[in-house]
Amino acid sequence: MSTDAAKLILLNEADNVLVAMGPIGPGVVTLPDGRSVEMPAQVTLGHKIAATAISEGALIVKYGMPIGVATQDIAAGAHVHVHNVASRYTATNYRVEDSGVAYE
């Protein structure tokens, strides 16, 4: 296993996102299941990337539970965050400049 895989964890088998355990990317990284994906941008500790391609309107699943809906198609390896996910309850309050989203 490469060091990349150790930095991305799958919290639940049902999840379609991986959580970064430290800064990782950009570039080709190895996922915990051995697949390789291209990360277009760096993400930092606690942020998520798509484990597989996620279509607009699909649920984002973390901890085995839905945490929101994709607002656009998300490629495998891309940062999954406030710029491409919406809550199904109340809108997320954030500051664009320090939301951790790199413009990809």
């Binding site: 993400v43 930092t44 945490i67 929101g68 309850y89 109340t90 997320t92 939301s99």
Partner: peptide, 29 residues
């Protein structure tokens, strides 16, 4: 959920998003 809906803002601060949390559901779980 109804109370926060009236307020128009969830129990979610800007710094939560900086640290990687995307939605109130994710923060809640």
């Amino acid at each position: 959920a109804q109370y926060y809906d009236v307020l128009g803002v969830g129990s979610f601060a800007a710094g939560n998003a900086t640290g990687g949390l995307t939605t109130i559901e994710e923060k809640s779980l």
